[in-house]
Lab assay of single mutants.
Amino acid sequence: HNGKLCKLKGIAPLQLGKCNITGWLLGNPECDSLLPARSWSYIVETPNSENGACYPGDLIDYEELREQLSSVSSLERFEIFPKESSWPNHTFNGVTVSCSHRGKSSFYRNLLWLTKKGDSYPKLTNSYVNNKGKEVLVLWGVHHPSSSDEQQSLYSNGNAYVSVASSNYNRRFTPEIAARPKVRDQHGRMNYYWTLLEPGDTIIFEATGNLIAPWYAFALSRGFESGIITSNASMHECNTKCQTPQGAINSNLPFQNIHPVTIGECPKYVRSTKLRMVTGLRNIPSIQYRGLFGAIAGFIEGGWTGMIDGWYGYHHQNEQGSGYAADQKSTQNAINGITNKVNSVIEKMNTQFTAVGKEFNNLEKRMENLNKKVDDGFLDIWTYNAELLVLLENERTLDFHDLNVKNLYEKVKSQLKNNAKEIGNGCFEFYHKCDNECMESVRNGTYDYPKYSEESKLNREKIDGVKLESMGVYQILAIYSTVASSLVLLVSLGAISFWMCSNGSLQCRICI
């Protein structure tokens, strides 16, 4: 991952900044910058967002509201009850120091605090018919004063009620008058409520006091790749198909172990950190130390980045220098085999997901714990399936590479015959000098055995068991695999060879 928040398929997220979902939807004055928000790819909250409900109280069923919003990608904020005409018999300019803005008392931008007009609070009834052709999110509140005197001074009615009804919602609220500790300079409380109004449905408000009335509502448009994440990451000019709280993932790998919460087309989250597919040879310690064997393909974004291909070729060293050249036929066979294998694994496992966190309130801790156990169970199954699949494929890959290298080895052996000696570690020792032209003939299969047989015969008789390297004779190393990324691999195959001279070296080696 890149540690950044990015656009998702070209669409920017909605960053709530210092506000949370509650503050944004109710219209906390400190969240005025969010009022123009219309569309987004996903919503970003920060872990310690401080601006929620400015007048103390709870947004009821907040967790369910977050779940609903996680599939919303755009909205239209509109005046559901026009301020100047909807409440002619009531005062609608209630403000509070708890919702101060720029040093002055204020109130929510989407709600109206209705109080008595003169000395009376006549029963009010108002309704709205949803003609938007889509779901409408309606929010309101109920004020709970701290004393009967406060109730009387604001609403005149000691036994007030609030009723809200639609086809799918029907509740009646009565204020709970009680002494409470002071929070944000208030002994009173406000509880906030919401409902989704279906197209064509009607919502009716009736009250004799204590109503925090809707002013603006939201017509919602769903987008199934949307979601809500909690993150401290910063926004950058970048684009992605998959976003996590820790950063964007741009990967076609089937798995990731970065974060379980994802938005967009994302690899499946697994616990494993070692889900690797081999593309090189079986481990040979001396070669492995030099980083030549054991190439791997990573299938977990965050564990290993991208696929690494092994390729086969020849390396030689003689009086004229040293050089490398790919054996294109065996390399292409290996590439085709690995590509098919990788595609097979991805096809089997690479279903892209959006995974969002589930919200539970403080009273639902047991449910949250149960949900976590269920999620953990599914996660263990996914991890096991992934590891088992790759384990089985790896064994076949190792066998496949062994065969490829063996074929190259036999190709060289059949040409050199007794003009060189096998020394048991995949290397041959020449009994004759071999210049670049000679080396090329070994690589392309045109090695002239009779041409060098007499010199080889004489050297075999002279050496008589002495280690060949100390006599200045020449080696050919018969097994060799270097490691390159897919891009470098293609470039390498396009070149005939490249040279690395070893000044004054008397050794001649050709490596497979």
Rank of each mutant, 00 (worst) to 15 (best):
K373V: 08
L398F: 08
P245H: 03
T446H: 00
S330W: 00
Q246A: 09
D376P: 07
T305H: 14
K358N: 07
N252M: 01
V278F: 03
E437R: 09
Y312D: 04
P245I: 03
F255C: 05
Q475Y: 04
I423L: 14
F353A: 13
R460K: 13
M439G: 02
I510R: 01
M367V: 06
C242Q: 11
M277G: 06
A297F: 09
I479P: 06
G426A: 03
Q352I: 04
I479M: 12
Q507K: 11
E393V: 07
R396N: 06
E455I: 13
Y480L: 12
G280E: 08
Y312S: 10
T262C: 12
Y452A: 06
A484N: 01
I249V: 13
I463K: 15
F293P: 02
N503D: 04
K462V: 13
T240H: 07
V270T: 07
G445V: 06
S486Q: 06
D327A: 06
C501T: 11
Q320V: 02
E359F: 14
L281G: 01
I476D: 01
S470L: 05
V374Q: 05
F378L: 15
A478R: 02
H401C: 04
K268E: 03
Q317N: 10
M307P: 05
T331F: 01
V261L: 09
Y314F: 15
K406S: 03
R509M: 15
L489K: 05
Y289N: 10
D464N: 08
D380N: 11
P245K: 06
E265L: 09
A233K: 15
H316P: 00
C508M: 11
R276E: 05
F360Y: 14
L388H: 11
Y474T: 15
L490R: 00
Q475W: 02
I258H: 08
N318I: 05
G377F: 05
F430R: 07
I512C: 09
Y324R: 01
W382I: 12
Y312K: 06
L275A: 00
M307A: 01
I476V: 04
V442F: 01
C266F: 08
A355G: 08
G298T: 09
K413F: 10
Q317M: 12
Y474L: 12
